[in-house]
Amino acid sequence: MKIDFSHKQAAHCENGVVSNLMRHNGFDVSEPMVFGIGSGLLFSYLPFIKVNYAPVFTYRVLPGLVFNRFAKRVGVKVKREKFRNPKNAKARLDENLKNNNPVGLQVGVYNLIYFPDEYRFHFNAHNMVVYGKKEDRYLISDPVMERVTSLTEKQLEKVRFAKGAFAPKGHMYYPTAFPEKLELESAIVKGIRQTCRDMTAPVPIVGVKAMRWVAKNIRKWPKKIGQKKTNHYLGQIVRMQEEIGTGGGGFRYIYAAFLQEAAVVINNEKLKEFSKEMTEIGDLWRDFALDASRIYKNRSGESDGYNKIADQLVIIANREENFFKRLKKVV
C-alpha cells in the first residue's frame, strides 16, 4: 500500500514533518511558519547534561514542542502514541497506513542506515514520516533528505526503539482533527510573544542569559579543562548550530524567513525590518562558528582566540536581547 504523499525537503526534521503532514491534509503551511508559530527558536545551555562527552547546547526547543504548540495555536488536534512492545508499535503503524493515514515517527539516528556513518550518533530526536509499505519495506519521507527512501521492518523497528537519552519508545504522532480555516493571525502573535519571553527569560540556562554564560565559560575553559577539551566543546557548539542528525538547522535564518512571511499574513510591515535584522544576527552566528573553527582546526590548541569568540558571543547576546525586547512591542 502506498499513500499519495508529496515529500518536500526541509532544513529541520520536526518542522519538515509537520509542514509535510499539514500539506497532505490540505493545509499549505511552510516550514518557517510551523517553526515560528510553534516558537521553535531558543538558545539553551545545559552544562550538567553531557552528550558525546560535551555539555548540551541547543538552538531550539525540546523535540515535540514545536508541533504541540503549533497545533494548539492553529486549532489542530494531534494524537501521540508510545509503546512498550515493538509488536504493538508495528501493528498500530500498519493500521494507520491501511487507513491511508501517513504518520510522523520519532526515531534514533544511530541505526539510520541511509545516513553516512560519520553522522550516526546516538541522537534520538530525529523525525520522519512513514507513508506506505511495499512488501516488507516501509516507505519513508525523511525531511532532511532530498528524496524519499525506505527501510525494512527490522531497520525501522531498530530506529523506533533506539535507547539512551530521549529514547523514542516507538513514538508515533499524527493530526486527527482540523478547523475549517487555520487561525494563522492570532497563532503568529502568540508564537512570537512566547519566543520573545523565552529568549529574555530571567533564568541562566535559556535565552540570552545562557549565551552570556557560555561566553563566560569559553574564557575559563582553556585554563580549567585544558585546550583540547575546550576545542571539543567549541566543536559541539558549532555542530549543534546546524547539522543533520543533531537537531540543528540554521534556526536564525528560518526564523527570519518566518518573520518575513508573517509580515504579509498579519499585515505588519515592521516585521520585515525585524526579518532583515534577524538575518544579520544569523550572519553573526556564522562568523562566530567560522572563528571558533579556526581555533579547533588545530586540535592541540595553542590559540589565544578564546576571548575573541567569547566577545563575539556577548555581542550576539546583546543584539538578540535588544531584538526580542523590541519585537515583543510590535505584535
Partner: peptide, 10 residues
C-alpha cells in the same frame, strides 16, 4: 568547512 572540521575532530 567549520562543521566538517568539528565533525572530523569528534
Amino acid at each position: 568547512e567549520p562543521k566538517s572540521i568539528a565533525l572530523d575532530n569528534a
